[in-house]
Simulated scan of single mutants.
Amino acid sequence: MSSISAENYPTIRSVGRLRAMSSIADADPRGPQHDVLRILDEGGHHVGSHVMPPVGELLAGYRALVLARRLNEQTSALVRQGRLAVYPSSRGQEAAQVACSSVLSERDWLFPTYRDTAAIAARGVDPVEVLTMLRGDWHCGYDPVAHRVAPQATPLATQLLHAVGVAHAARLKGEDGVVMALCGDGATSEGDFHEACNFAAVFGAPVVFLVQNNKYAISVPLAKQSAAPSLAAKAVGYGMPGVLVDGNDYAALTTVLGDAVSRARAGGGPVLVEADTYRMDPHTNADDPTRYRSEDEVAEWERRDPLVRLRAHLIRAGALGEQQESEFAAAAETMAEHVRDGVSQESEVDPEELFAHVYATPTPQLREQRALLRAELDGLEA
């Protein structure tokens, strides 16, 4: 059994303490409080009492962070060049993106949002395939079953219900797979989030809900979304553990998420993890973040950059030198070149695909519409 408990993490304590209060007026309206769990501070120093993950794992994690950062940079550039329709960058959130995939086994599932391209690539999916949807194609670009990665979901929180369903089905079949369900702070305001958490807790589904709290639902700040002391505090209402972790601390993330996955796999039920992080780039290329946040705010969070933090720790530990950094940078450039070449390839468009996956047996109306389209295309080609 994993070590996620009130003794080992600053998880939400029982609301039973409210019964001991003399009156409701004594209760804190913000509910239970807890601190942010951190293992590495902004300077890369080991803080607190939690054990540092093995240096080899941290070094591999740093390499993955370098690739994730380069993917964000390269893909954002492709949007500006008009070779991609849109790209929701996760720059600044790479620690959460990489950590959530690194703790999963091959038999586990990842349920991502539209902003989790780096997490899917860290799972081993070809980034060119991941970007297929963002080019405006009709499908997600990769085989979800082969990779155990669900299609990226644009509507907020809808994929969380699907994630719980997959996890519950695995339990019914006697499998020990775990589902990592990703969402942002804005998604926690959706009814789908509540339904997913409630169902998962009631049925003990092996799900880890990772909320990447990047402080804004497009332009709406967290303070205008929730009055709770943290999003992890919402876990108490569902009867599951809630952990608030520094989302820019890769060491803390792998520790907490690894324990949560182990707990779920062992039958301990779901866990809600809130990663306290920040979206450094605009919401998408269509967004102007200067309308709702200041340059000073962004600069403060850039000082907490997850790559800078882990790099400082590894250099101090003697595990990262110029040779490794050069190798990691070269690998990132090779990946970026692959992305550029892949995205530059023109997709083959077949208009008749509009009718290919609507019904297993096409209806008379669809057959008629397809015939009309075929006739028009034949006329254009004549």
Rank of each mutant, 00 (worst) to 15 (best):
G82I: 00
A77G: 10
A329V: 03
A360M: 15
A336D: 08
G237Q: 03
P53A: 06
S102V: 11
P53M: 02
S3K: 15
Q212S: 12
D35Y: 11
L210F: 11
Y238C: 04
V308F: 12
L310E: 02
G16K: 14
L156T: 07
A228Q: 04
T363F: 07
E348M: 13
Q225D: 08
P221R: 02
K215Y: 13
E325A: 05
L380F: 15
A382K: 12
I4L: 08
V211W: 02
L272E: 05
A232D: 08
S262Y: 08
A99Y: 00
Y278L: 01
A181I: 00
E7K: 10
R340H: 05
M1G: 12
P144N: 08
V339S: 03
V349A: 11
A205D: 11
R30A: 14
A122P: 03
A170N: 11
Y114F: 15
M52D: 05
W109L: 03
T158F: 06
G247I: 07
A375L: 12
A275D: 00
L161M: 12
Y238K: 01
Q225M: 04
Q345W: 08
V298K: 03
C183E: 05
Q159P: 07
Y292I: 04
E57Q: 11
A332F: 03
L380P: 12
S105I: 11
V271W: 02
G184T: 03
V271F: 00
A382T: 09
F193V: 01
G318E: 05
Y238M: 04
N285A: 15
A228L: 05
P88E: 07
R367V: 11
D192I: 01
L58C: 00
L244W: 10
N285L: 10
A375D: 15
E129N: 09
L380S: 13
P241E: 02
G31S: 03
D259V: 05
L160P: 01
V79E: 00
D350A: 07
P229N: 15
Q33R: 14
A252K: 00
P127R: 02
D192M: 02
R291S: 10
V273M: 00
S230L: 09
R311N: 06
Y62P: 05
T255V: 04
T117D: 14
R374N: 08
H313N: 05
L380A: 14
H34Y: 10
L366N: 07
